[in-house]
Amino acid sequence: MPLIRVEKLYKQYEIAGGQATPVLHGVDLTIEAGEFVAIMGPSGSGKSTFMNILGCLDTPTSGNYFLDGENVAGLSNDELAALRNRLIGFVFQGFNLLKRVTALDNVALPLLYAGLSKSARREQARDILKQTGLENFTLSLPNQLSGGQQQRVAIARALVNRPPLILADEPTGNLDTQTSREIMDIFTRLNREQGITIILVTHEPDIAHYAGRLVRFVDGRVAHDGDVAGHAEHG
């Protein structure tokens, strides 16, 4: 059973005036557990919308999305929230950490909604922060950390619930080359050592080369699905 199976996915946005703007035109895609997939495409190609639907943050207009064998289309908002909490870790371009909340508590936050006790939350969060090399920054606030450190806190937060899937939306977009490389090394290690499925949106061919499979979106359709080599360079 594939981790992700998407069938005839359509998405259109209603704009004022009653006109519908189609964004996704029937996307079919299957991703197996343990894959590392890069998603590329020009802006407006629908790749962000696709990621939001994969992340259960948005719902398709029509089509089916099976996540871990379950059809997401019929789920309520609260069921989707529970699904996100259990199966998906998010890493964003802008880090999206809670300001004025320590690294430790940021990382522990998903566990709060999973219903763990305070001591268990803290303990697990500390373990994960150690894995991402931030054991000395547990009590730091996000604005006291560098961009790379903040993104590592965000990755730790995505990992703390031990989800089988991580969705990263341009995780290196705000980072310099050196730091980007460090972050990508973490993703690669997670994918190889822990078998976590990683789906990553990027503009940069260098970053896409860390993945084992490339999916390119053009005008709301999958234009390429396969090898990274030789296909990542179009930006």
Partner: peptide, 15 residues
């Protein structure tokens, strides 16, 4: 944005 982050990582509406 904070509400969005909380929702993304699993907060339900009633939370």
């Amino acid at each position: 944005r904070e509400i969005g982050i909380r929702m993304a990582i699993g907060a339900r509406r009633r939370d």
